[in-house]
C-alpha cells in the first residue's frame, strides 16, 4: 500500500495560542483513517491545513508524495472533502449545486457521473429539489456526492455525522463503509465520538489539545482482550480473597475500595458474573468499556454515556 497523505511536524498558532503542535501522521491507500479528538482538539484546523485553507505555522503536508504547497491546484483534484458542515447554495437545486461544483473540480464530468454519485448517496429522485428544502442528512449526502463526483483518491470527511439523527448516523456509517469497500476510497474521517470512529476505522489517531496522543491500527487499539470490566460490589474484600488462586486473578487490572477492575475479552463476562454471584458477591453494577475508550474519556473528561448515546 502506498502513502496517499502525509503530515510532518505540522503546527498552527493563532497569535500565541497553539491549535496544532508538531503533528505527524500518514494515511495509506485504502485506509479509513479515524481522526479522533474532543471539540477544539485541533481536528478541523489540521484538516483545513491538509486542504490549504489554513496555512501551517510549521510543518509540511504531502499528498501522493508531492509537497502540497507546491502543487496545490493539481493535488486538490485527488481530494474530495466536507469540512464541518455541508454548506451549499440553498437557492439552487441539489443538481445545480452538484453540477456547479463538479465542473469546478474537473472539466467534462458527464451527467451520467452525476447521476451515479446521486445513486451512491441515495439522493436520486430528489436532485431537482432546492437545497434549502433538504434535511440535514440529505445535505450531508449531497456534500458527499460533491466530494465524490470527480473520483478523488482521498475523501476527507470532517464530522460527517454532526447534526444527524440516530438513523442518519447509522446510514452515514454504512455509506462510509460502502465507499471504502465497494468504491475503493481512502477516507479520513474526523469525529469527537469514539463510538463512531471505532465502527468504521481501520487506523485511528487521537489528538488532544493539538498534540498526537496515540495512533495505531484499529485492531491494535481496539483489541477486545483489553476490554475493562468494572465490577462494583458491597464488601469486595471477601471476593478479593477468593479470587487468589482462581483463573480470574490474571485478569485483575486494579482493586479499589468498592470495586474490582478486570481486563479481559468480553466473552468471559457472563462466566465472571456467574462466578462472582456463586461466591456470594453482592454485585451492584457491572459494566465494560474498552481501554481505548477509557483512555479517550480520561483525556476528554467526558462521560461514557455521551459516547454511547447512539
Amino acid at each position: 500500500m502506498s502513502t496517499i497523505a502525509e503530515v510532518t511536524a505540522l503546527s498552527k498558532y493563532f497569535g500565541k495560542t497553539p491549535a496544532v503542535k508538531d503533528l505527524s501522521f500518514s494515511i495509506q491507500e485504502g485506509d479509513i483513517y479515524g481522526f479522533l479528538g474532543e471539540n477544539g482538539a485541533g481536528k478541523s484546523t489540521t484538516i483545513r491545513m491538509l486542504l490549504g485553507l489554513i496555512y501551517p505555522s510549521a510543518g509540511e503536508v504531502y499528498i501522493k508524495g508531492s509537497l502540497f504547497n507546491n502543487r496545490q491546484r493539481q493535488l486538490l483534484q485527488h481530494i474530495g472533502a466536507i469540512i464541518e458542515r455541508p454548506d451549499m447554495y440553498g437557492y439552487l437545486s441539489g443538481w445545480d449545486n452538484l453540477r456547479i461544483l463538479a465542473s469546478m473540480s474537473r472539466k467534462g464530468i458527464p451527467d451520467s457521473r452525476l447521476y451515479e454519485v446521486l445513486e451512491i448517496v441515495g439522493l436520486r429522485g430528489r436532485e431537482k429539489d432546492k437545497v434549502k428544502a433538504y434535511s440535514q442528512g440529505m445535505k450531508q449526502r449531497l456534500g458527499i456526492a460533491i466530494a465524490l463526483v470527480h473520483s478523488p483518491d482521498l475523501l476527507i470527511l470532517d464530522e460527517p455525522t454532526n447534526g444527524l439523527d440516530p438513523q442518519g448516523i447509522a446510514e452515514m456509517r454504512n455509506l462510509i463503509l460502502q465507499l471504502s469497500k465497494e468504491h475503493g476510497k481512502t477516507i479520513l474521517i474526523s469525529s469527537h465520538l469514539l463510538y463512531e470512529i471505532e465502527q468504521v476505522a481501520t487506523r485511528i489517531l487521537i489528538i488532544h489539545k493539538g498534540k498526537k496522543m496515540v495512533e495505531g491500527s484499529a485492531a491494535e487499539l481496539l483489541n477486545p482482550d483489553e476490554t475493562l470490566v468494572e465490577v462494583q460490589m458491597a464488601q469486595p474484600d471477601d471476593i478479593i480473597n477468593k479470587i487468589s488462586g482462581t483463573q480470574w486473578l490474571p485478569f485483575v487490572s486494579s482493586l479499589q475500595s468498592d470495586r474490582i477492575i478486570f481486563k479481559m475479552h468480553p466473552e468471559h463476562i457472563p462466566e465472571l458474573n456467574k462466578w462472582l454471584v456463586n461466591n456470594g458477591a453482592l454485585v451492584q453494577d457491572l459494566h465494560s468499556k474498552h481501554s481505548l475508550e477509557a483512555y479517550f474519556l480520561s483525556l476528554t473528561n467526558d462521560t461514557p454515556a455521551a459516547h454511547r448515546a447512539i
Partner: peptide
C-alpha cells in the same frame, strides 16, 4: 457567510 467559501477553495482553483 453561508459556508461555501471553504467548499470552493477545496476545488482546484487558485
Amino acid at each position: 457567510n453561508i459556508g461555501t467559501l471553504r467548499l470552493l477553495l477545496t476545488k482546484p482553483v487558485t
